[in-house]
Nucleic acid binder design. Structure first.
Lengths: 248, 248
DNA sequence: TTGGTGTATTGATCCAGGTCAATATGGCCA
DNA sequence: TGGCCATATTGACCTGGATCAATACACCAA
């Protein structure tokens, strides 16, 4: 049951009319350029939960934009351990890490029944050479991801379990607000194990922290969604327990 | 005392003759395009250790390529905690995270006396629109960083202290090999505190792990450099202690 | 040579969170 | 409506690494 999509604004088949165009690739493109872009985009059928959009090691043929629903990216290292690299919501792009050597370095999996726009990279490549605005947009989106990865490394590296969960919840909430959705019941469309993996914790610890935060009256947990009751307290907890760095 | 530069191949003032051109921006550019690029590049004076190339929050005016020496990038979060995001060696580019909104999201600091090529972004921007090959190169480099960040998150998230140190040493060694430098005495040109910060450990733990690895005969530590005596053992330790993921 | 300062190593203690194990809850199908 | 299975919560225990503190080492200046 796609919880998010129920609340989504109407999505159009074309980028020009898509409510997400200011988050997604089309942002800053004039209508002429935009039309060229949307001719490339294939906004396909709904895909069920667990569908793999692409797998680590696959050749890079398309990148994907989330239309509605959600996805995660997973990377498996040499020793066979897997790490969830991110969760993706409407307007987010999947597949940027494939441009380096034309193959995907992680897998992408739908978390729920979702729609994705498929964009063939070979055609995109041609169009990018043609449209400076699109080139700039692409570079900025990638750069943005880079800088968010930095933020994530900060969270993973320096925060304790409560700080990590709090940061995650605030982050998800903020991303909902960016998309014009109500920021407070945050649906947790991924499993606890996914959360735990992403935050580098054990799922037992995730559980414990969630109930602790609930008992403190900061959030209200109910199955797959979290109400943020006291945002300030949550913010406070998201930084508490962060280590002080040794000066160098 | 710039340990790295003593072993560096001769560096030319121009990209065309630079021994690092296949790692750096120029890779895959034909000689005509390359000449246009190198007209932008200002390969300046030596800068001493601790020099800040740009600061978090600065407007994006230049990106930098390491010519010789080394650098680190540091990010300070809202609460004032700082995290080292990466170490950079000849051929590496600094500043990619600034393209998102034309300002730097981290600071860059030289670790030792170093040379950097300065590339003005406004002119680069124009040139990128003109040269598809350069555009492609830029996107690939950024994508590569993205995918390496993923690897780092994996290390930070899933490995214990010994795994982290081992991974770091192997990584530094591999990057030296990529640059045609002898892979085994790995100079640690950053302070222990920097290492600790980067790996999200305490410097005492870094020390302890280094001596433990030394006692095991895997490495030989001497002040600012590490000899890798048993690469296989090091590899083995870099994966040992990594958690098993809960299946989702 | 000595003293001072910054950096690295080592030792002793303690706790957050990992581990193992039991129990609870909810969704689904017969 | 009950039984099954996947997922989530809670409990008890233990260990890796953070913390606090002392000591060692290197480098420089007087």
């Amino acid at each position: 049951m796609p919880a998010l999509s129920q609340q989504m604004q109407q999505l159009s088949e074309t980028c020009s009319h898509c409510s997400l165009r200011y988050l997604c690739l089309p942002d800053h493109l004039d209508s002429h350029d935009l039309q060229k872009l949307e001719r490339l985009v294939d906004s396909g059928e709904a895909v069920p939960a667990e569908t793999e959009l692409f797998a680590q090691g696959d050749g890079l043929t398309h990148i994907y934009a989330v239309r509605d629903g959600s996805a995660k990216t997973v990377r498996i290292d040499e020793e066979g351990f897997e790490q969830i690299l991110g969760f993706y919501y409407p307007g987010d792009i999947l597949g940027f890490d494939g441009f380096a050597d034309q193959q995907h370095h992680c897998s992408a999996v739908a978390l729920e029944t979702s729609h994705f726009c498929r964009i063939p990279v070979d055609q995109l490549d041609v169009l990018v050479d043609e449209l400076p605005s699109l080139r700039q947009r692409l570079v900025r989106l990638m750069s943005q991801v880079l800088s968010e990865d930095g933020r994530m490394m900060l969270t993973l590296g320096r925060k304790d379990s409560e700080g990590r969960i709090s940061s995650l919840l605030l982050g998800l909430s903020r991303r909902r607000a960016l998309r014009g959705m109500p920021p407070t019941p945050v649906p947790l469309n991924m499993k606890r194990a996914d959360l735990a993996n992403f935050l580098s914790m054990r799922l037992e610890t995730v559980s414990r922290v969630l109930t602790r935060l609930q008992r403190a009256g900061v959030i209200k947990v109910s199955q797959n969604k979290v109400d943020i009751l006291d945002r300030d307290a949550l913010r406070e907890r998201s930084s508490r327990g962060a280590w002080v760095a040794d000066q160098s």
